[in-house]
Design a protein around this nucleic acid. Structure first.
Lengths: 149, 149
DNA sequence: CTGTGTGCAAACATTTTGCAAGCAG
DNA sequence: CTGCTTGCAAAATGTTTGCACACAG
């Protein structure tokens, strides 16, 4: 396992971001970063807040700090967010390679996938409209294998 | 122009929805449906509310009614909604053929497009995971031609 | 008539902000 | 020391709900 090594890289990027913006490396930001890094699931500000409150007895972090830190991380592309129909917005750590999501409307499960050809076609479409891609979102909604019973 | 004819079809679908759910055809629902149908832009509940207040002097429609009607229409697939990074959610009338969106992060403009091949590839990916597609969302974020100055 | 729909205001949920005190650099 | 950060509570947004009256079927 090279998880710790990966975390160091993630942490390094974060410190670089802080340096570049004259921001400070605080205990709170460290805890948030760690918790995000260790999250296997997609999370909301609220769920992150709850998880930290539960697992990290040493420190209280206000919900406002969670929001402020997530904004920073999103702006710096260290986390990405995906929006759902009605139920709001979930985040995930930007540690993985690019991928898209299949979302089960029945159980809420998220399946990640990546298709090179689709990616290329998107670029082709954008080019045709002289549109400069920054990012893209693709979600397939439906019913997962397990829920099709 | 066959706009009126198309509106009649749209209205017909709506009346059918009402009938099926034992709901009633009211002045408010009529006005909302018309306004949605005539909207060229994507809209929010708030913007719809404002537009109706401005254009339709005869009648006051409460914001709650807008929300209630939009929920109904979305449930019945007569409007679709797309979610944006942070700024919430916009709707569009479900009168057009399927298409996806390119969204300019600078000016907010929305360009619609449709690529058959991408659609097919999505189905192929879903099939591989035995995932049953209900719907899908694809957004390309970036900077439009005009804003690239 | 009956039961659904509506506007209004209050209730909620979520996210942002002002402020005084705390702490990193 | 200086100025970015934080927690808290208040404020701002966005959306939903309860209720009494209105109205479609």
């Amino acid at each position: 396992m090279n998880n710790n090594e990966n975390y160091d890289i993630f942490l390094g990027r974060f410190k670089e971001v802080l340096r570049r913006n004259s921001l400070k490396y605080t205990k709170q930001r460290e805890i948030i970063l760690q918790t995000i890094y260790n999250s296997t699931e997609h999370f909301t500000p609220e769920s992150l807040y709850g998880e930290i409150a539960q697992n990290v007895s040493e420190s209280k972090i206000g919900i406002a700090t969670i929001y402020r830190t997530l904004s920073l991380l999103e702006k710096e592309n260290m986390v990405t967010s995906i929006s759902f129909g009605a139920n709001g917005k979930k985040y995930e750590a930007g540690t993985k390679d690019h991928h898209d999501h299949m979302i089960c409307d029945s159980c809420g499960k998220i399946i990640e996938f990546c298709d090179e050809v689709i990616e290329e076609l998107q670029e082709k479409v954008a080019l045709k409209h002289q549109f400069k891609i920054i990012d893209h979102v693709m979600q397939i909604h439906g019913i997962c294998k397990e829920c099709q019973d």
